[in-house]
């Protein structure tokens, strides 16, 4: 499903060169739930961004969902992200000016789905995270765990093949974190969604299929 060959990412400023990723080779197959761990600054997020086409690698070849994506122009990347990928962030990144349901239907907006269908799909996605009764609230009226569940609903509403989660439980207490984790696991098992998750939490990582450890931009396990 996801294949990285010799992927490197180097940040250059005038004076310093920082290697964020160093020749990573990685294969993730369909239906896998992979977690990535490592100390701060080891390149976890960069790796996730590269897989998610939010950032371009300096070198190497990436294949996501069977498509070689690193030569895509910006329009094609946008379309690809929209169709194939779903994102969950540590700080939720809900748009404060939009209600819960409007936040969830966001990916569908860029897909020419009719308003009626958008509403149905979003309601279904919210139902699957247990927040259907909150769909007309605004993000500021929700707790952290609820916000993250809305973010998950948003990530899955377009029915993506791959879900990329950047420390989804990082800002939550353990109880809420477990709730979110339960939803992700359920998605993985029932929908066969491939999930890549960056996390700091050993307990969460243990619940996944495979654990990947990064250190200084290199894969150590």
């Amino acid at each position: 499903m996801i294949q990285l060959e010799n992927v490197s990412k180097v940040y250059r400023t005038k004076t310093i060169e920082t290697t964020a990723l160093n020749e990573i080779n990685l294969t993730i197959s369909e239906g896998e739930f992979v977690s990535i761990m490592g100390p701060s600054g080891c390149g976890k997020s960069t790796l996730l961004n590269v897989i998610g086409l939010l950032d371009e690698p300096t070198e190497g070849k990436i294949t996501v969902a069977g498509e070689s994506v690193q030569n895509y122009n910006s329009k094609a990347t946008s379309k690809f992200r929209n169709q194939k990928l779903g994102f969950i962030f540590q700080s939720f990144h809900l748009i404060p000016d939009l209600s819960v349901i409007d936040n969830v239907e966001l990916p569908l907006l860029y897909r020419n789905v009719s308003a009626k269908e958008r509403k149905e799909l979003s309601a279904a996605a919210l139902e699957s995270v247990g927040l259907k009764n909150r769909m007309d609230h605004f993000p500021s009226q929700l707790s952290g765990g609820q916000k993250q569940r809305v973010a998950i609903a948003r990530a899955i509403v377009g029915n993506p093949a791959i879900l990329l989660a950047d420390e989804p439980t990082g800002n939550l207490d353990s109880h809420m974190g477990n709730e979110v984790m339960d939803i992700l696991l359920k998605l993985n098992q029932e929908q066969n969604t491939t999930i890549v998750m960056v996390t700091h939490d050993e307990n969460m990582a243990k619940r996944t299929n495979r654990l990947l450890r990064l250190y200084d931009g290199s894969q150590v396990a």
Partner: peptide
Amino acid sequence: SSEIGVRKAFGATNSQ
């Protein structure tokens, strides 16, 4: 900016 980031992550193009 964060809103723009999210929109882009979920597939909004520059022109959108």
